[in-house]
């Protein structure tokens, strides 16, 4: 039982990280209808931005964390205003391939700059302590911090999307871009905002992953893969769906590795993906008309 609870804790922490990564992707897809594969590298670059500001410059983790969010948010705007805006009228496959190209370029650039040989620790609050529940269950302080940050991010995101004028414009654009424009909503401004928030969420995911583990050039690959599955599982464009699906996948992944077999962990997300596509293609919280 203790092992089960321990895996639930690890899975929750992992799932929360994935949910943040997926939320950025879901938000951009919800409004802009593009699957931005470059998001994986925004996660990675978020980790490096945190490393540079926190470890190399020597500031507090949260300075690095917010710097990563800001820089990745701006990079998101840059990507939208250059590549995605130009390709917006083109077929979805063009946009997908372009985002894959950006993914490859950013990955190569990061590797050239930082290489993959070094330890890149990020000093995260809570690293030195752990909460012990009984004799055998422990929750690392850093994992508690990331869960708290994630919850705060989701509350903030909920507030922005559902309780502000900006959020209303985003939702209106998501429901119908042309109608929203006719109603006076400036679509480009909304697009820039969505890419900013999406990029910032990617950056925050990278900062937390970097804090929990090490910062490395390939750290965006697995979260991107899982995020893609999460947004299909949760319902394309659904923020709530991304959070719930992220948690479920994170926990399932950990339980499978521990109880079924270490080689089988990767089968879980893809198994879930297949089942969702066959049984409920709109995902957990997607509307029936909006299929993956």
């Amino acid at each position: 039982m203790t092992a089960f609870v321990q895996q639930l804790i690890y899975g929750t922490s992992y799932g929360m990280n994935l949910a943040v990564a997926a939320a950025g992707l879901a938000l951009i897809f919800g409004v802009y209808r593009v699957i931005n594969l470059a998001h994986g590298q925004l996660i990675m670059l978020g980790g490096f931005a945190t490393y540079v500001v926190t470890t190399q410059i020597g500031t507090h983790f949260f300075v690095g964390f917010f710097a990563a969010m800001a820089v990745m948010g701006l990079l998101g705007i840059a990507l939208e205003s250059t590549i995605f805006r130009i390709l917006q009228a083109r077929p979805a496959t063009d946009q997908l391939l372009a985002s894959l190209g950006v993914y490859m370029i950013l990955g190569t650039v990061a590797l050239r700059i930082w290489g993959d040989f070094e330890a890149r620790p990020v000093n995260m609050p809570g690293e030195a302590w752990a909460l012990h529940l009984g004799e055998d269950i422990r929750i690392d302080g850093a994992r508690i911090v990331t869960i708290a940050i994630t919850l705060a991010l989701f509350i903030g995101l909920y507030f922005v999307v559902y309780r502000t004028h900006l959020g209303r414009t985003m939702r209106a654009t998501a429901q119908g871009g042309e109608t929203a424009e006719l109603m006076g909503i400036r679509k480009r401004r909304v697009a820039a905002l969505v890419f900013f928030i999406g990029g910032a969420l990617g950056g925050s995911a990278g900062a937390m992953l970097g804090g929990l583990f090490n910062v490395r050039p390939d750290m965006g690959f697995q979260p991107l893969l899982m995020a893609l599955i999460i947004i299909i599982f949760g319902g394309m464009g659904s923020l709530g769906g991304a959070i719930i699906a992220g948690l479920i996948l994170g926990i399932l992944y950990n339980l499978t590795v521990y109880y079924v077999g270490s080689k089988l962990g990767d089968l879980v997300p893809f198994g879930v993906l297949l089942i969702v596509l066959m049984v409920r293609p709109q995902g957990l919280f997607g509307l029936p008309g909006r299929r993956a």
Partner: peptide, 20 residues
């Protein structure tokens, strides 16, 4: 033997499997 996949970031479940 415990084998983890390429791209793993969180090694907790794999190390837990070893610790078990």
């Amino acid at each position: 033997a415990v084998f983890y996949p390429f791209g793993t970031t969180d090694f907790a479940p794999y190390v837990a499997k070893i610790a078990e």
